[in-house]
Nucleic acid binder design. Structure first.
Lengths: 210, 210
DNA sequence: GTAACCTTACTGAACGATCGTTAAGCTAAC
DNA sequence: GTTAGCTTAACGATCGTTCAGTAAGGTTAC
């Protein structure tokens, strides 16, 4: 195979192309199982060429995370800016979260891998750049919606429902015998919305809990 | 370092010792990031010695999964054998699930890694050996507890809540600034129990949903 | 206008380290 | 004497990384 050489002969954004391929491979196989040569092959270049754009494998991985997670946190705040009743906003939020996860499998898998790897420093970054802002939005929404409950616990429940569903998807497919379609995702999102709405809103006939 | 040689000089269950060390390392770092030499070092032996007990790295990994997951499915059925009201049983179940996950980090991380890796065949095995039985128990419990709802969706919600909470634990620690203690786990379990109980049980004042 | 030079974006080749695995030999228990 | 349970040594493959060189563009000097 012939590689191109010289300056302007290459694509305008080789770095972005590398990161896209790296995201796909790291998401699928994890950091250790992806070699520099795998990445080079995926973008039709040589291992050494990658060292022109990045200082090493770790640097590629870090840049990949930034590439995939950047601006992910911003979208939730738009969701929260709506003027509707909090009940409507919660349902919209859960549907949106579910769709985000199932429509972006690469981002989702990288997120799950980062949560699993547990490196203190990277978790800190992930929290700050991706999770914190949406989490605070959900907390404040739940504070309005379920004033009787600890808002942190309520927010954790909402996030857990969606994240856990995504995590369970493969066994769910195996157990039901049918693939998890977009419709199934939405059915769960509706179920979860109802669950949280009825489960945490103040109940007139029951004594206050906690 | 001197290795022992000969037949009975070694420990009675070297195989079990290897699997225990393998479980720890595979859970922590994943399959690709653990080398045969790492495993050998952890049990004070040589790489070649491992090939006396197992046919290769893959075989060690498979045996490790079996070692860690065996009999995990049985315990739920004991939970479900209780004669108490389904409300009590659900709470007990959620508390027990939460404790299982947080008390067995190695099992939990291996489970999460298996869910993530997504190899069709291993997911099938994981489903059959670990998830299926508890899931069916939860389904039947939810059928009694929330007859108005799809029992599969209800069971998924219960499992998602606990599994998602465990998955979120690292960012939760980072965000609250304090470690997730046993008490915090139980606080979440109680919160989740209340959520599911009030969220899915039939509501006299509301029209049937779905 | 063009020759000289610099910079960018690569190339092929190789470095030492580590990978999973195997072969051959030894020792102690049965 | 057989065999289980190791040992040391080494195999070829692959790993992340580096190095010297090269081709194509842009910039500057004349």
């Amino acid at each position: 195979m012939q590689y191109q050489t010289g300056r302007k002969s290459s694509q305008p954004d080789k770095r972005g192309e590398i990161l896209q391929a790296a995201a796909t491979q790291f998401a699928e196989n994890g950091f250790a199982a992806v070699s520099i040569r795998d990445l080079a092959r995926a973008v039709n270049t040589t291992p050494a060429a990658l060292y022109h754009h990045f200082s090493g494998k770790e640097a590629i991985y870090r840049a990949t995370l930034e590439f995939v997670f950047s601006d992910k946190a911003r979208a939730t705040s738009d969701l929260a800016k709506g003027q509707e009743a909090p009940e409507v906003m919660l349902e919209r939020l859960i549907v949106w979260l579910t769709r985000q996860f199932s429509d972006n499998p690469i981002m989702t898998r990288l997120l799950q891998r980062e949560l699993l790897t547990g490196d203190k420093e990277r978790i800190k970054l992930l929290t700050k750049e991706v999770v914190a802002a949406p989490f605070r939005e959900i907390e404040s929404l739940m504070r309005r919606l379920a004033p009787d409950h600890d808002d942190t616990l309520s927010a954790v429940s909402v996030l857990s429902l969606v994240l856990g569903y995504v995590e369970l998807t493969p066994v769910l497919e195996e157990m039901t015998g049918q693939p998890v379609t977009h419709e199934r995702d939405m059915a769960f999102a509706n179920h979860a919305s109802h669950l949280v709405l009825q489960g945490l809103s103040p109940q007139p006939d029951a004594g206050k809990v906690q």
